[in-house]
Design a protein around this nucleic acid. Sequence first.
DNA 1: ATGACGATTATGTATATACATATTGGAACG
DNA 2: CGTTCCAATATGTATATACATAATCGTCAT
Lengths: 248, 248
Amino acid sequence: MSLIETDDVDGAESISLHQRILSDIREKILSGAWAPGHRIPFEHELTTEYNCSRMTVNKALSQLAKAGLIERRRRSGSFVRRPQSQAAVLELHDIRIEVEALGLPYRYERLEQLKRRSNAEDRALLGLSAAGSVLWVEGLHFAGERPFALEQRLINLSAVPEAGDEEFLEIAAGPWLIGRVPWSEAEHRIRSMAADEAIADALDIDPRAPCLVVERRTWSAERPVTHVRFIYPAESHTLVARFTPSQG
Amino acid sequence: MSLIETDDVDGAESISLHQRILSDIREKILSGAWAPGHRIPFEHELTTEYNCSRMTVNKALSQLAKAGLIERRRRSGSFVRRPQSQAAVLELHDIRIEVEALGLPYRYERLEQLKRRSNAEDRALLGLSAAGSVLWVEGLHFAGERPFALEQRLINLSAVPEAGDEEFLEIAAGPWLIGRVPWSEAEHRIRSMAADEAIADALDIDPRAPCLVVERRTWSAERPVTHVRFIYPAESHTLVARFTPSQG
DNA sequence: ATGACGATTATGTATATACATATTGGAACG
DNA sequence: CGTTCCAATATGTATATACATAATCGTCAT
């Protein structure tokens, strides 16, 4: 409300006008009232409809355009776009949080840790061009008494030398790295795999049982930081991704 | 540019000032120069640094805040946030596009189609409360001669009655639905599973071989539209998700 | 008919200004 | 010494205005 005349004295939640315009239009689009291709009112029309300045309307429309809901064309107006990219937001929680959300006690146990000069495979996984030291850590996440996930991690010690002095005995390297290294990019690969002998043994499942594998590579300012592979027994884990076209 | 004095006569790409401020600050954060917790300059300081009005600076900072890179506190200033939500953008392409990207000929073949009154399982999958007609379609996506994915789909005919008149013989229901129904929300579940007899037979793989299962539920304006399950043989498919903290 | 050109129009980006709001820090007071 | 309260301050949101830019439409001459 602030300094504009308060002639909209209705329900009057303290929502900014800008927010109201935004959600009004979004609602019209998502409900299908304004189908793809439909020309939405010109800025100056919305200006009179909402009794506000063009700047306010413009800000809302620009935001909708940036979110991909509408397309703006000079001299022609703004048009509803059809949702095209099948992109979903995938949340990859911290495993501890995930386990505790299930109401089970969480525990981490390190299996193996090794500092070594990077071999060709390490460099391929991390995306490194030159040789250098890496840290290899393998550990198990437990939910109660049952193994929940096996973690195999490679850390680029040229990027995070301090990690070389750590013993990841009871806390996983993930939480340690987050908060210490500002990461700028990550890539995930998700696939299905049959457990081999070693994995089946660690996770206490049958050999050849299906597993969900999530691999993540992380960069910080162009430099590879870590490559981690989480292996979940099929029964224990489902990834959930949700998507709403606009996240304004 | 425009009406401000053009004393920045350097390289002068036609990038708006607002964009420049935005990417400058983003760069400082992502490179680690400004670590999490760091207080970034006040708006009035940036105003003199970039020689522009507070509105311009404010717009850039608000955008960074909305993207989750910084946190703004009244009277205290703006601070670099530590990346916390492990959210990734997952692109789920159209299967045809995916196959053709591999350079293989794409083909779809319908296996089974059935119109029926929804049973309890159907309603659970679709998230329906009341009974009604549903359409069940099962089909196979081929890459060359090999089965690429098995599709099992349930369509809520109360939401999309026209689908009841379609025969999804050679085009999958997915592409047909998109463009016809404006969908407002979708949920994905990704998991690993061992193929049972029927699936192994359809996909021409060994029984008990691991598969990647992607399930998607779609809503249009609060109403469930469809539930689809894609089953990929483990070798044929990896989902890739990429994430950069800011998508300004 | 057709093509060039200028007027018109809608959006894009910036300005200066105004007032609201939340929070902090310190002064005044019990 | 602690508590209350006020002033200062940084951000939040809106205004009116100005000029730039791109695209379209109609006019006019060829």
